[in-house]
């Protein structure tokens, strides 16, 4: 599935990124590149800086040093809303849905930047506003079908079970028609069945929708099964990058997760 390294220009490139909060080094010299159609995973122990990396990619944090390029253009220091507009969508480790709104409204908010009408048209609800609402609603229904959310679509997401909320969040990111999808722990806290469902959705997104994905995940089974390449970070420092098989046997990775071997 994965495109061979270097055969096409990368979707996202991080070059020697350093991010620190006062004295704490959250990200320390991470470089990575994600190719079109690739499922790239970032793993590491708690506090390794995985989510910080996501926040750098989506513009929440500005790294002190290094370069971030999306589709060949630097997005360093751009506002999160601008980076989102360029086609980077993300989900959150702790679900960040608009909890009082329905599933459909959450998906429609994912399409916000694609819906092109202004407040004046909204007040009248004639012509353009109504036509575009219907048009984009149809697009959202496709996502509802894709993620099998049909029975929930008119419920406020705050009332939905956890696993479904995770799915809605994925749907909201998909509604943005992203060129790159960042998934922050998509199966955290899920049972086996829900994890299997989510794995299937993630594979479908990559294969059918052809969206490259970066995934942060603690479920090693899932990462090893799904990912094309894996980056291991520990205390903000990159340990190694490689295929799941390479990474699994890497001595540094074993040490980071299991500690030193007793002598």
């Amino acid at each position: 599935m994965s495109v061979a390294n270097g055969s096409a220009s990368p979707v996202l490139e991080l070059d020697d990124v350093h991010l620190s909060f006062a004295g704490v080094k959250a990200v320390n010299g991470v470089s990575l590149h994600v190719d079109p159609g690739e499922l790239f995973a970032i793993i590491g122990p708690n506090g390794a800086g995985k989510t910080s990396l996501f926040n750098v990619m989506s513009g929440v944090y500005r790294p002190q040093q290094g370069a971030v390029r999306f589709l060949g253009e630097s997005v360093l220091g751009a506002k999160p809303s601008k980076i989102a507009a360029r086609g980077v969508a993300r989900t959150f480790q702790n679900i960040a849905l608009f909890e009082h709104l329905t599933v459909i409204d959450n998906l429609m908010l994912g399409r916000h930047q694609h819906i092109g009408y202004g407040p004046a048209s909204a007040i009248l609800w004639r012509g353009r506003a109504r036509r575009l609402e219907v048009e984009h609603r149809r697009h959202c229904e496709e996502i509802v079908d894709f993620l099998e959310l049909g029975s929930w679509r008119h419920l406020p997401v705050g009332l939905l079970p956890y696993g479904v909320q995770k799915r809605v969040e994925l749907g909201r990111a998909l509604a943005m028609e992203p060129k790159l999808l960042l998934l922050d722990e998509p199966v955290a806290g899920m049972n086996l069945e829900e994890t299997e469902d989510m794995a299937r959705f993630v594979l479908d997104i990559r294969d059918e929708l052809d969206v490259p994905i970066i995934m942060v995940e603690h479920d090693m089974g899932l990462v090893m099964d799904l990912a094309d390449r894996v980056l291991v970070v520990d205390f903000g420092t990159p340990v190694t990058t490689g295929t799941p098989a390479e990474v699994q046997t890497h001595p540094e990775v074993v040490r980071a997760y299991l500690g030193e071997e007793a002598t």
Partner: peptide
């Protein structure tokens, strides 16, 4: 009409989760 349109939705998004709203390009 404002409430049910794109504009009202973006208001509600800012109310519920402003950080996530920014990630939607708001």
């Amino acid at each position: 009409n404002i409430g049910r349109s794109k504009v009202g939705r973006s208001f509600a998004a800012v109310r519920d989760r402003d950080m996530a709203a920014e990630m939607m390009g708001i």
